[in-house]
Design a protein around this nucleic acid. Structure first.
Lengths: 339, 339
DNA sequence: GCGCCTGGATGAAACGTTTCATTCCACACT
DNA sequence: AGTGTGGAATGAAACGTTTCATCCAGGCGC
């Protein structure tokens, strides 16, 4: 059906080797033949068969990316960063969404392995160390994104403990003392580290209390539920500030709080999130947040991955980026307060 | 490096044909040999080479999806619908983001064609008719999503004119008369159709005025800018309701309006968006919106695509889904859903 | 006991590239 | 004129599957 290099060769009155040379080493071929081949390609609508090319090369020019939750704009930007950098190196990016589900993570790893991708970029959810080691032995590199596994693999992450510290310190600076951390599960490294950072700072202030409010996942809906739980409390036991493990949770909390109209943000309760997604600035009470260089995160991870794929004996490298505070109205940082 | 079917065969003391049979037609093989092969596979860590498989089969088991803007949660859900349905049929989905840029659309089409995907699902941005026809001749099916091109191809879309009518009618029902449509560019079919629907309804009410407020793109930031323009107007010329072409715009508008605190939503100005993304319900003033069955949209499109890939002579089919109103606080309604 | 049948295993061919050792040819140099 | 020389084209091999015609060993009916 589709024209092959053989058809092109016949049509141009040349050999397949020559056609291949035109395609891959145009300088080794005479201008006249190049023109003839190009004409034949055009005429037949030839499109090279990537599968055959890959089979011959023994490796594809793709890398796989597995994100934790594609409905979180944060991961979108990380993937975009990786893709942009990959495009420069002429590798395509396949994006899979594990949804924090171990089985889906495994399914994508299977897929990528069958495709013989150059490497895999992922924020692991299951116990993948052994699997990744096996894949590495098979020539597939791996770089961890936004999470770190015992120095076995290269990784690019953001210092979540520091982020937790920044958020907590900010709330304290704004005069809050009874603080709740909302998030979960703690099995997610990000959540654990952010909480740990917050706890550290809390420990440095004798008049500050830090409470852990667990959620099952980090979504808008879960944030709403957690918000309703907080609202239902008596004023005396209610926190005067909330540090949410990410912005989706924080925005859910915000919605629960503002719709009931029983509390005001930030007057009655301050709120800070994490990730600084675009919707954070756009919320009706602009949300304070801990920003991460997410595009950069993806870009650096891809860079490390390509280097490692190039030279598998390369030493493991662990890059840690710095988060930073973006203070907005939801913590009273602006003069603006909205009922 | 990686073990091949040949290695497995040797290791199991059988032939490659038999190994292949174990993998692809397990019933034609005796229990004992199956066990032997499985053991060998396990021991060698064999993973089948998808490229070779594809080469032999002449076609991959992937389909490509090209979305207009991956930072709009709407497209995420469309893609998720397509992916879910594809998974049932054992096809993987490659997602590309054109960002409404013709060159990137072309780049993804090239990639997909080289990969010999079964078909392509896309919301076209450039003039792709001829290209898609050529690809179809080469055995690659195409289905258009959320946009329709002159009956040449199958498509799944949502009736944007009706959606525009619904939004407009709702605003009128809520007592609004001076209405502004915010959106653009009109070269986007969705924007044009939604505005056309709104204009139709406006024409049916002699006391209603409809104004067009142009934006360059459909993003949060552009919504914020448009909002500031509206706020700056004198009360007498200011609209009492805004219909935004999508939710990103609407949320941007909302933020501009609420932070200046000069106007209240919905009392001074009602606001309705389009798409009903998750952040709409989660906004501090829950946003009324026109919902589209986006997951279904992706699902149906994938279904059509797979059918067409199966039987290329299949008649073109054009599915049009119905949007529906989700009324929330931003138009002064309680959370009511109307079909 | 002989031929036939059948379930199961076999091995070669083919898919479309790329690579590389080889061949070919024209031209310059001796 | 003969001999190198080097640039350009060639064609076969190989990549890892799947498929399919073939082959083989037993079991069965006669």
């Amino acid at each position: 059906m589709a024209a092959s290099v053989k058809d092109v060769a016949r049509h141009a009155g040349l050999s397949v080797g020559t056609v291949s040379n035109v395609l891959n080493r145009p300088d080794t071929v005479t201008d006249a033949t190049r023109a003839k081949v190009m004409a034949a390609i055009d005429e037949l609508g030839y499109v090279r068969n990537e599968a055959a090319r890959q089979l011959r090369a023994g490796m594809s020019n793709c890398v796989g990316v597995i994100v934790l939750n594609s409905s979180n704009p944060f991961f979108n930007d990380v993937a975009a960063g990786a893709e942009a950098w990959g495009a420069d190196a002429n590798v395509s990016v396949l994006v899979g969404n594990s949804g924090e589900i171990v089985a889906r993570e495994k399914a994508y790893l299977d897929l990528f392995e069958e495709q013989r991708v150059r490497g895999v970029l992922l924020s692991p959810v299951g116990q993948v160390t052994k699997r990744l080691q096996r894949m590495r032995r098979g020539g597939i590199a791996a770089v961890l994104v936004d999470r770190d596994v015992a120095g076995e693999f290269s990784s690019v992450s953001v210092d979540d403990r520091l982020g937790g510290r920044l958020a907590m310190q900010h709330l304290i600076d704004m005069g809050r003392r009874r603080i709740a951390f909302v998030g979960g599960p703690l099995s997610l490294g990000q959540v654990a580290d952010r909480f740990a950072g917050a706890a550290e700072v809390a420990g440095e202030h004798s008049d500050v209390t830090l409470e852990f409010v667990a959620t099952d996942r980090l979504t808008l809906a879960h944030g709403r539920v957690a918000g309703e739980r907080l609202i239902a409390r008596a004023a005396t036991t209610r926190p005067d500030a909330v540090f949410a493990a990410n912005d989706l949770l924080a925005l859910g909390l915000l919605q629960a709080i503002t719709t009931t109209r029983s509390l005001r943000v930030p007057d009655d309760i301050a709120l800070i999130g994490y990730d600084d997604i675009d919707f954070a600035a756009g919320a009706a009470v602009p949300l304070s947040s801990i920003a991460q260089p997410r595009f950069e995160l993806g870009r650096l991870a891809m860079d490390l991955l390509l280097k490692e794929a190039e030279d598998p004996s390369r030493a493991v490298e662990r890059v840690v980026l710095q988060p930073f505070l973006v203070a907005r109205a939801s913590t009273g940082a602006d003069a603006v307060t909205v009922a």
